[in-house]
Design a protein around this nucleic acid. Structure first.
Lengths: 217, 217
DNA sequence: AGATTAGTCTAACGATTATTAGATTGTTAC
DNA sequence: GTAACAATCTAATAATCGTTAGACTAATCT
C-alpha cells in the first residue's frame, strides 16, 4: 500500500462519517426536529417516539459527526443543529431519495389523499398573497418552534389547540397550513379538520428548513 | 403505535437507504469514480484498489439504493451514475464533511504542501484565460474519462504519459492541471513533476463533478 | 469444444451497530 | 438533608455489515 492510497482512504473515511450519521431513520428524524429549533433530549425523545436512552445514544452519534451541538442549561441538555449547512444537507438527501426511490414516492402519494388540498408551490406569490392578507398562513407546530423561526406572515395555532381556537380563523379566506415539512403530518391533519368544519384550507408541505430559514446559534 | 407514526417511520427509513449507501468510504470512492464516466466493475476495482468481489458487493449496495445503474455489454457489466443529482449529492456531502470535520481539513492541509501551487478558484476567469490561450488547462485523467466529459478548453495528457509528452506543453504559459477532484492526487503529482522540469504549473483541485459537468446517460 | 475472462451469488467469518437494562452523575424542588 | 428528574455511561444482547473464499454463469477467444 502506497502513500497516496493511505491519504485517500483517510479522506473518504471522514466523509463516510457524515453518511453513517445519516444512515439511521431515527437520526434523520432527530435532525429534522432540530431544524425546527433547539430542543432538550426528552422533548426530542417524545417527538420522535423513542426512549430517552435511545435518543441520547443517537444524539451522541450525531454529535460525534459534528452535525449537532449541545449546551447544558440547568438540569437540561439542549441540542441544536451545528449550522445551516446541516439543514441543507437534510433537505438535499431527502430530495435525492425522492428522486431515486419509487418506494418513497409511493408512500408520499399514499399520504396525500386529495391533491386538491395541496398549496401551490410558488413561494414568492404565496408571500405576496399573505402580505396583502388574501390568504392566512397558519403554523400548527408547537409554540416554541414558531418562536424560534417561522414563515413570513405566519400565525401560530398549535395543532392541539386548533379545535378550540377555530374562531380566530377567517371563514372567507384560504388557510395555508404548514408544519415541520413534508414528512410531518400535523398540517395535513389540520387541513382535514378545517375542511370538515367548513373552512377552505390547503396543505403547504414545506417548513422553515425547506425555506432556508432554520434557526441557528 | 398509531397510523401516522407508521407512515413517518416508512418515510425516514427510505431516506436512510441513501444515507446507508453513503456510509462506506469505498462506496463513496466508487461514486466519485463513476462521476468521471461509466466504467466496468474491474476498472472500478482497480482504481479503488479493492478486489473485484468487494467492488461487486459495494456496487450492488449502490444499485439497491438506486444511485447507480448497470448495463451489460458483451462480457462486461458497465456501471454508471443514475443521474446528475447523485453527483451533486457527492459534492454536497463532501462539502458538509469539510465544513464540519476538523480532522478532514487537517488531512487536506497535509495534502497541499505548498499553497502557492493552487490555482485560483474563480471559474469564469479561468475559462476566459483558457479561451484566450493565456493558460493551458491540462486534464491528466485516463483518456476515456476525458472523452466522457472535460472542463472547457482542456487538453488531455494522462498522468502516465506525461513524462514522455512534456514537449506538448508550453514553457512560457502556466499549466493548470486537474483530475477527478480534490481527493484525487493525479493532478497534484503532475504539478510536482512539471515544476521539477521547469514548467510553471498549478493544481486545480476540482473536476467535472464539481463543475456540474458529469456525463450521464 | 475447451480455456479464459468478467462478474455474480452464496455462505461464512469477524467486526460494528442498534437497542435495552442497570447503575451513576448532576441539578432542582421540597 | 431526601426525593425527583434529566441525561449519560457501561455492559450485554441480537441484528447487521464488511470482507473473503468457493461455486457458478455467461460471454469471448482459440
Amino acid at each position: 500500500m502506497n502513500d497516496s492510497r493511505r491519504i485517500k482512504d483517510l479522506l473518504y473515511e471522514q466523509v463516510a462519517r457524515i453518511g453513517k450519521a445519516a444512515s439511521s431513520p431515527k437520526r434523520l428524524e432527530l435532525i429534522e426536529l432540530l431544524c425546527q429549533g433547539e430542543k432538550t433530549v426528552d422533548t426530542l425523545a417524545r417527538e420522535a417516539a423513542i426512549s430517552m436512552k435511545l435518543a441520547s445514544a443517537h444524539l451522541r452519534e450525531l454529535r460525534s459527526a459534528r452535525l449537532v451541538e449541545t449546551e447544558k442549561r440547568g438540569k437540561y441538555v439542549i441540542y441544536r443543529i451545528a449550522n445551516r449547512a446541516v439543514a441543507d444537507f437534510w433537505v438535499g438527501i431527502r430530495s435525492l431519495a425522492e428522486d431515486r426511490l419509487v418506494e418513497l414516492r409511493m408512500v408520499i402519494e399514499q399520504m396525500v389523499s386529495h391533491p386538491k388540498e395541496l398549496a401551490p408551490q410558488d413561494r414568492d406569490s404565496l408571500v405576496r398573497m399573505a402580505r396583502k392578507g388574501d390568504v392566512m398562513v397558519l403554523d400548527v407546530r408547537p409554540a416554541e418552534e414558531f418562536l424560534a423561526a417561522h414563515l413570513p406572515f405566519a400565525r401560530s395555532i398549535p395543532i392541539g389547540e386548533l379545535k378550540l381556537r377555530l374562531s380566530e380563523l377567517p371563514k372567507g379566506k384560504t388557510v395555508v397550513a404548514y408544519c415541520r415539512g413534508p414528512y410531518c403530518l400535523m398540517a395535513r391533519d389540520a387541513v382535514e379538520l378545517l375542511r370538515k368544519k367548513g373552512y377552505e384550507a390547503v396543505w403547504l408541505p414545506e417548513g422553515v428548513a425547506e425555506w432556508g430559514m432554520v434557526p441557528v446559534r
